[in-house]
């Protein structure tokens, strides 16, 4: 279900973000974060790039699984929140940068690259650039892990769009910005040179987790 208005409000106050997200998704966001971390870091010692860490929910799980993480996050406030959550001694490189700067990182340096609820924050140009640049940052056998709000299927899609209009207005009144659903996430990954290996959906099909590998 689209929870846009609340999400935007929560983003305005990072400290409340996690509790709120958990309530809104009936605890499902925890399951999503777990699934993202598991998919991104199957082995201890994996090198993971997380693009947009938010309050560090996924970062903390990756660290707990023994991954070495590099984070790109443009928001200073989110970054501060995530750092205090994960701990300053954790093996995490925190970079206050945009996703557009992925290509300033070394090539073939990561076992996996994670976009958890961050692609939907970007413009089409930014998504295209970030996805394409990700390809060259992955080592052989590396994978892309993408979790985001997507367009639901069938009847749920109609319900989803009916619920978004009033929520968008509410979001604007509360926090002055509005997020989006990704209409064709799979297509965008494929256009960026990836092959989607698996796809899972949560919350009436509106949250998707995609695993992809660079196409040969």
């Amino acid at each position: 279900m689209s929870t846009l208005a609340f999400m935007r409000w929560l983003e305005g106050t990072p400290s409340r973000y996690d509790a709120g997200m958990r309530a809104l998704t009936f605890g499902r966001v925890d399951a999503l974060h777990d699934a993202v971390a598991e998919a991104a870091s199957p082995r201890s010692g994996d090198r993971v790039l997380e693009v947009g860490c938010g309050t560090g929910a996924v970062t903390a799980r990756l660290v707990a699984r023994g991954a070495r993480v590099t984070v790109l996050e443009p928001s200073a406030e989110m970054l501060a929140q995530a750092r205090s959550r994960v701990g300053k001694d954790a093996p995490v490189e925190w970079l206050e940068r945009t996703a557009s700067e992925i290509d300033t990182l070394p090539e073939r340096a990561f076992d996996s690259i994670v976009f958890s609820l961050s692609l939907s924050e970007m413009s089409p140009d930014e998504r295209r650039h970030a996805i394409a640049a990700s390809r060259d940052r992955l080592r052989g056998g590396g994978r892309l892990v993408v979790a985001d709000e997507v367009r639901a299927r069938g009847l749920a899609a109609m319900l989803q769009s009916a619920m978004r209009a009033p929520q968008a207005l509410l979001a604007w009144l509360l926090v002055g910005s509005v997020s989006q659903v990704l209409p064709n996430l799979r297509g965008e990954l494929e256009a960026g040179g990836f092959v989607v290996r698996s796809e899972r959906r949560w919350l009436v099909d509106t949250l998707a987790l995609l695993l992809a590998e660079p196409a040969r």
């Binding site: 443009p74 945009t98 996703a99 557009s100 700067e101 290509d103 413009s123 140009d125 930014e126 295209r128 650039h129 002055g176 910005s177």
Partner: peptide, 17 residues
């Protein structure tokens, strides 16, 4: 309000071609 910052400019310069 923090919606048009250095980040948006950097990102636009780098991704617009």
């Amino acid at each position: 309000g923090g919606h048009l910052t250095t980040h948006q400019v950097v990102s636009t310069l780098r991704t617009s071609g």
